[in-house]
Structures are given as structure tokens and as C-alpha cells.
Design a protein around this nucleic acid. Sequence first.
DNA 1: GCCCAAACTTTACGCGCGTAAAGTTAAAAT
DNA 2: ATTTTAACTTTACGCGCGTAAAGTTTGGGC
Lengths: 343, 343
Amino acid sequence: MGDKKIRNMEEFAAVSGLSRPTLSKYFNDPSSVRASTRKRIEDVLDHYDYRPNLYAINQNRRLTKNIGIVVPYLADPFFAEIARNIEEHILRTGYRPVLLGSHGNPDQEIENLENLRLLKPAGVLLAPLGRASHQARIAAFCDEVPTVMFDASIGAAGQAFIGSNNYQSIGLIADYLCRTGEPPAFFEMKNPANPNAHKRRNAYLAAMERLGHNPHLIQAEGEGWEFEEIGFREGTRVVRDRNLPTNTILCSNDRLAIGLMSAAYEAGIRIGLGADCGMRVAGHDDHPFSRYTCPTLTTVSQDYEAIARQSAASLMDLIEAENPPDSRQEILFDGRLVMRGSA
Amino acid sequence: MGDKKIRNMEEFAAVSGLSRPTLSKYFNDPSSVRASTRKRIEDVLDHYDYRPNLYAINQNRRLTKNIGIVVPYLADPFFAEIARNIEEHILRTGYRPVLLGSHGNPDQEIENLENLRLLKPAGVLLAPLGRASHQARIAAFCDEVPTVMFDASIGAAGQAFIGSNNYQSIGLIADYLCRTGEPPAFFEMKNPANPNAHKRRNAYLAAMERLGHNPHLIQAEGEGWEFEEIGFREGTRVVRDRNLPTNTILCSNDRLAIGLMSAAYEAGIRIGLGADCGMRVAGHDDHPFSRYTCPTLTTVSQDYEAIARQSAASLMDLIEAENPPDSRQEILFDGRLVMRGSA
DNA sequence: GCCCAAACTTTACGCGCGTAAAGTTAAAAT
DNA sequence: ATTTTAACTTTACGCGCGTAAAGTTTGGGC
């Protein structure tokens, strides 16, 4: 490693024998200097580990290389996973991801956006809380900063929306359940925080009509993001009352299903396909933990690989386009049926 | 809201009728100006939503108000939860938390520390990967930046370490298991990534000796952080072979236990306390999902509330002390027995 | 009313880099 | 060898704020 420490670009210019503006160009975009110059710089970099001061860099730039990623709840492995995927895509394009979780709190969500604004990000990827979000303020933010919404949308905020095709995926699993047994009731939250929940409810109703069955909604009370707890509470009530017209329950998401299965287990009801089973349960999302429930959870996988990739790509398109797009992009990915033991 | 937009502190000084240095003092520490002046500033702030430019602020400051938080794996709800707790404590002290996950990757961990160094943080809270970490580089980082290690330590790196008393907690649950049934075998990874795992193994061996029983180790092959998968794989083998000297298995952590329980379920083995149950399983950590396993998981809770609080507090002490501490602080919190259905 | 410390203002410089303009050199094309 | 053009150097200014120094005002205690 190097002899003396390099304190700024000026000193680095001295030891490298190049001018500071040239180095500035290099650090902003290595391909903007001649190949021979680039090599020369990189050779010197091997000896003196210098990196430009982040604050000085960003002070003058209108836009930084920062990209904000905001998810509603980082303690939910689903969002943690999709955030990890997005981060990787961002890094590959040479930008710096800044990950923030809203902890299910609308004020925190706004606070996150405010903090991001201070970072002057080139763009933001936002998975909003949904119904609880301060919609007007989010819309205002989207007007100032190029923003791609993912997972859930809020009105027409954001220049693009990338998500799942709930209509297709719920239709898919409803169809599967009807083909393999009794038609499902639909287990959901009465006042779901997530906008996808509304679409899934409607998709369920439509699917049941299409398949010629009577729909049946089971709506759990409860607020917040403690879905397992809510699923467990309402699930306990459901298995106690036993007045369902069916032995099959399709849950709005896997976390509710996990709570429901726990309640059923406590009540001594066996879940699964066998003759000795009293109930079938299916979920939605292919949550990381759904492979380890007892029995393993039949569900529909959200293609979060694709959602992550497309979200990052759409934001890059936005950033690199000079003029704002004429129309709002909306891309939905189909779900895949994941047949496991619970239904 | 305000009429025209405030672009910098100069303009804000103009509309507020105060001088820029006074405002600078206020934004650095509101209590450093007279109460009447403070009120005057805050009244103006209500009308013009101005916030000082983050980059300009930090450019001249030797230390920023940033505090880095690095955890090994954000997709593990345990770390997501503890990170959330820490963030809240940091915010309460007026600092800005910056959360980074290492994705179980030592290179990513170093990259995170390098990126943090660019932010010139006042301090860093680091939960290291452990055995896989690039120890020398982490130690070098700790020499430059005030660092508190939590959850796991690496040698004597860091000015403080806050964690769990594995010796106590494993002793506690081992004792409980022996009192209520057959003495436990210990289910762990052969080459665990996490340093706590080694302590837990030793604590188990010591507890068994103290209680006058023969220890039995079940060591799962496998690398990485996919603990449920590893627990499932090795668990499948264990229930197939059925050559255990006991019907009770204590797992090194809850995620392994979740995998093991899933394997047992698939094999048709009922877990729990009842006469119809063939196996007891216990875990360690009180992982957020351990309340929803089937049956619910008996475990030892790590007091992550306390760990989060103390980690933040210790770092604050470090930052606010002028001279470096004479000795390395080490605080371990006891675990609490959580009796549920599985053992 | 006076005194004095605390709080404020004015002035001025510096942080490390982006960036523009004008001049110079090197590489590629004729 | 000459022209062209891209790449580089030199010079200079600005970003928004921290901060120090010196002078001025404020407010509380006597």
C-alpha cells in the first residue's frame, strides 16, 4: 500500500501526474478518459487507496448516484428478499442503493422520503404502505423525484408501477383448488393495509363466479403488519365455529396462512390432502417460510426476481431519459402455482 | 406553507432576520441559542420548509451525525427486528441511522464498512458475520471508527461488545428439558457461521456434565445462512436413522429447529409433550416465527430489546467521551425461558 | 442605573470537489 | 507531413455550510 495518505483529489493528482479535472472525469465515469489514462490512474489507485469525498462530490451535482429503496416492513422476509434483489441490480448499474424500511408506519414512510430528498437521489424505488400511506405527500414526492412504485401502487403516483398480476395468480390457485377438492373460502383482513389485498379479494370473487361456485369471505379484524398474529386469532375463531360451507381456505397471503395453520394445529385439526385431514389451506406469495410450515404450504409464487429486475430497469430508463415519459408504465408479472402439502 | 423557496441558509437568514452563523448554530444544536431566538427560528421554519443541505453540512465536519448499523443478514427477521430497535434508539439521540445488511457475504461486509467510512460516521454498530468475516480488516476498521459489536464478537475488535449470555441461556433450557423429560441431544451446524454457536455448544456440554448426563451432538453439514434448509436436510436424516439416545433435541437456534420440525412432520413424527408425541424439540432465540410453528416452539428468548438499547447506549458513551476508554466493555444479557408446545 | 457575560452580527476563509473556458498536446485521419 | 479532433492541462469560480475572530447588542443581577 501507499506511502503517505492522500487527503484529496489535488494530492492524488500530484502523485499520479495528471490534472485534477481529468481525475474528476475519471471518477464520474471511468470510460470518459482514454484507455491509457485510465490504466495509469488505476495503477496509482492500487498504491494509494484514495476515494473521493462523498459529500464534496454530491454538493455540486444536481443529481447524485444515490437510489432510494423504501419498503413498508423490513422485518417481513418477503420485503427483505426483494430489497436484496433490487440492491444487487442497482449496484450493477454503478449506483448506490440506500435501503429504508417504514416499519408499517405512514409517518415513518414520509420521514424516509424526506430523508431521501436530502440525499438528492437520482431516483427512488418505493413499495408503499398502501391504504394507510399519506397519499398526497407521496404524490408530491413523486413529482419531484423520479419514482418507480413496486409491489403496490397508490393511485397513479410514480412514473411506473411493477407488481404482480393478482387477478391471474388468484385465479390460478382458485382454479387449482376447485379442481382438486371443495371450492375455497377466502381468508383475508377486513381492512387490509396492502392494496394488493383488495385486488386479490376481487380476483377471488371473479374466479368463483367464473368457476360457478358461491364465494365465501372470512374477514379478520385487526390492523398493522402482524399478519401471523391476526391469522392466528381469526383462525382460532374460524376453527371453533366450524360453520364454513367448505373445508378449503385460500388465504390472501402466506403470513395469514401461517397464522391460520398454527390455529388449526392448536385445535387439533389436521391440514392437508389426506383422507385424515379436515382442512385444506393455501396461501399467496411463496413467502420464504412457507416451505417450512407443517404441512408445507401450497401457494402461488410472486416472481420477485422479475419484479426486482424490472423495477430497477424501469427506474434506470427513467433516469437516463432526458424528457419525462409520455405515459405511466405498468408491468404485472404472473404468479406460478407451487403445489405443496397443505392443499 | 412558504411563499418562495428557500435555497440555502443565506436566504433563510434573510427571511428570518437572523445571521447565518446563528442559524448554523441552531441547526447543529437548537439548545445552543437563546430560547427567544429558537422560537423565532422555529416560527419561520413553519412557513418555509427549509432544511440544510446534508452534503454541505458534513463536508467540513470531522464527524457527522451518521451512525452505521451493519447486520449479517437482513432477511433474517431476528436481525431485522434488532436493527429496527437500534434504529429507534439512535433516532432518539438525534443521530441518523444508516442500516446495511451483509447478505451473509464477508466481502459485502467489508464493502459495507468501506462505504460507511465514506460517510465519516460518528460511530458504528456492527453485528459481524463471524467465522467467515475478514477479521483483520474489521479490526482495522474498528481502530479508525468508534465501533460497538453486538450479537457476536470477533476477537477483541471493537471498543465494546453487547450480546447474550449463551452459557446462562443454554444452561437454562438444558436444565428445563432434563427436569421435564429425557436429557436433550444438541442439534447444530458442524461449521457454524455464527460465533455464538460455538459458545452454545460448549454451554450445552457443560450443562450436561453439570446435570450428570451424557451429551450427544448432532452436527449438520452445510454452509451459509439458510438455516431452515440445513435443519430440514439434517433433520430428515436424523428422523430416518432413529439412532438417538434420547427423544429430546435442543437446537442451537430457532431457525434450525423450524427446519427440523418440518422434517419431523414430513416423516409423520409428532412433536410435543403429549403421550402421543415421539419427540421434543427446543430452540434458542425466540425468533419472531417461533410462536407460529406447529406445535409452537419452546425456546429461550434473547433479550434483544436490552441488547439494542445497551448497544446504542454504549456507542453514545464512546462518542461523547473525549478520550478512548481504558478497557473494552463487555455486557451479556441473560435469556428467558419461553415454554411453549414443542418441549 | 451600571456592569458584565452571554448571545448575537459582521466579515472572512476554507472544505473538496464539479465544472466551464481557453489553451495545449497527443492520437487518429487525410 | 499536415490537418483534424479528441483528450488533456491550466485557470478560475462556485456549491452550501462550518467556523474562527472581532465587534456589537442584549438581558439579568446588583
